[in-house]
Amino acid sequence: MKKTNLVDHGFMDARIKLIDVAAFLDRIQRHEQTDDYRFHALKDAINELQTDEVGRVGRILSKLSDHSVEPIDKADIQGAFGAPKPNNQ
């Protein structure tokens, strides 16, 4: 397999996504909506970006997952929110 320079290939895309995340956090703070649990779930997950061990994606997905093990009594909604509700853990 010929080796592609993956930094050339992906840097600009990663850069814009990172800046977008920063803009999102600023926006939520400027509009004083930081009491939403998802804001804190995202900030907590972002800590994983600063770790040096490969596996950041899996660890971020795990942080944004419901870790309870028993089935819930009833499905009252059909959708999902992207981060577990704090009382769900």
Partner: peptide, 13 residues
């Protein structure tokens, strides 16, 4: 398998 925060638990079940 379920979406987003429900996927990990659902996959195990």
């Amino acid at each position: 398998t379920p979406h987003l925060e429900d996927k990990l638990k659902g996959t195990k079940l």
